[in-house]
């Protein structure tokens, strides 16, 4: 099963390789990984999507926590959470498809961020499912290049 982990770590050189080394060394999966500093520049926030049964995910969480530079590990997918990913897609847009591409982008509430005579570069944000959906729709038209940020996630705020 898929799990989305949110990890706070000290923003020090080599920290990311401690995390990725742990995953490769112990044979855990990384499906996506995204990292940037938080409001406190000495702390980074890392969102990692992994998969495995409960025992494996428990091991992953414990092993991450064991790293000296890791401050906090939360499996946000255990509760309600919001996840977002951004994708940049360079899609073929020649005279016969330009209008259709724009319609698709509009449906997905995407933005055109770069235009050339033969392509649009599109920015779309959403859940992994939504990103997958737009990619599936644009694929037959012709995707020239694609770059994804990987998922970032946050647990939902308490409603009380």
């Amino acid at each position: 099963m898929k799990h989305t982990l949110s990890v706070l770590l000290q923003n020090k050189p080599g920290v990311l390789s401690r995390v990725t080394g742990l995953f490769s060394g112990r044979g855990f999966n990384i499906e996506s990984l995204s990292v940037a500093e938080t409001l406190d520049a000495s702390v980074s926030s890392l969102t990692l999507v992994t998969s495995g049964n409960d025992a494996i995910v428990e091991q992953i969480t414990k092993q991450l926590h064991k790293l000296i530079d890791v401050i906090k590990v939360t499996d946000v997918s255990e509760g309600e959470f919001v996840e977002r990913e951004m994708v940049l897609i360079r899609v073929k847009a020649e005279s016969n498809t330009r209008a259709e591409v724009l319609r698709v982008i509009d449906i997905f509430r995407g933005k055109v961020v770069d235009v050339s005579p033969k392509s649009y570069t599109v920015e779309v944000t959403g859940s992994t499912t939504k990103i997958k959906a737009i990619i599936d729709i644009l694929k037959p038209i012709g995707i020239k290049e694609i770059v994804r940020t990987g998922t970032i996630a946050m647990a939902r705020a308490s409603k009380s």
């Binding site: 050189p13 080599g14 390789s17 401690r18 080394g21 742990l22 060394g25 000296i68």
Partner: peptide, 13 residues
């Protein structure tokens, strides 16, 4: 530091 990352409890440069 890179070489010993997986075989130390922690390491420092």
């Amino acid at each position: 530091v890179g070489i010993t990352r997986p075989c130390t409890k922690h390491n420092y440069l």
